[in-house]
Computed example of a mutant assay.
Amino acid sequence: MREQFQRIVDVVTSKPFVTVQVLPYGRGAHCALEGSFTLLGMAPSEYLVYSEGAGRGTLYTEPDLVAANTLRFGALRSLALTPAESVQMIQSLAERGAA
Results as ranks from 00 to 15, higher is better:
94 A>L: 10
57 G>V: 06
21 Q>Y: 09
5 F>V: 02
26 G>I: 04
40 L>V: 15
18 V>K: 07
2 R>W: 12
52 E>W: 09
8 I>P: 08
50 Y>M: 06
92 S>T: 14
51 S>A: 12
70 T>H: 03
57 G>I: 07
43 A>D: 15
6 Q>I: 03
39 L>H: 06
30 H>E: 03
68 A>Y: 05
54 A>T: 10
97 G>W: 04
71 L>V: 06
26 G>K: 10
19 T>I: 10
67 A>E: 13
8 I>H: 06
93 L>W: 09
98 A>R: 14
55 G>L: 00
65 L>D: 01
65 L>N: 00
55 G>R: 00
64 D>N: 10
99 A>M: 13
69 N>G: 01
89 M>H: 13
67 A>L: 10
51 S>I: 03
26 G>D: 14
7 R>G: 11
81 L>N: 12
77 R>E: 00
72 R>H: 11
72 R>V: 02
48 L>A: 11
67 A>V: 05
42 M>Y: 14
43 A>K: 10
96 R>G: 11
98 A>K: 13
79 L>I: 07
48 L>N: 02
10 D>Q: 14
78 S>P: 01
17 F>M: 07
93 L>M: 14
35 G>P: 03
17 F>Y: 13
66 V>S: 01
79 L>H: 08
16 P>G: 12
34 E>C: 00
49 V>Q: 04
20 V>F: 02
17 F>W: 14
23 L>E: 11
35 G>S: 09
49 V>R: 02
24 P>S: 08
8 I>L: 13
35 G>I: 08
90 I>W: 02
32 A>T: 02
82 T>V: 08
84 A>D: 11
14 S>F: 03
88 Q>K: 11
74 G>P: 02
67 A>R: 03
81 L>F: 09
60 Y>M: 10
11 V>R: 00
8 I>T: 10
34 E>H: 07
9 V>I: 13
24 P>H: 12
81 L>I: 05
4 Q>G: 12
83 P>S: 08
55 G>K: 08
58 T>L: 09
40 L>N: 07
91 Q>Y: 08
75 A>C: 02
8 I>W: 08
30 H>P: 06
46 E>W: 04
5 F>I: 02
62 E>R: 05
4 Q>K: 13
25 Y>P: 01
42 M>A: 14
10 D>F: 09
59 L>G: 02
53 G>T: 04
65 L>K: 03
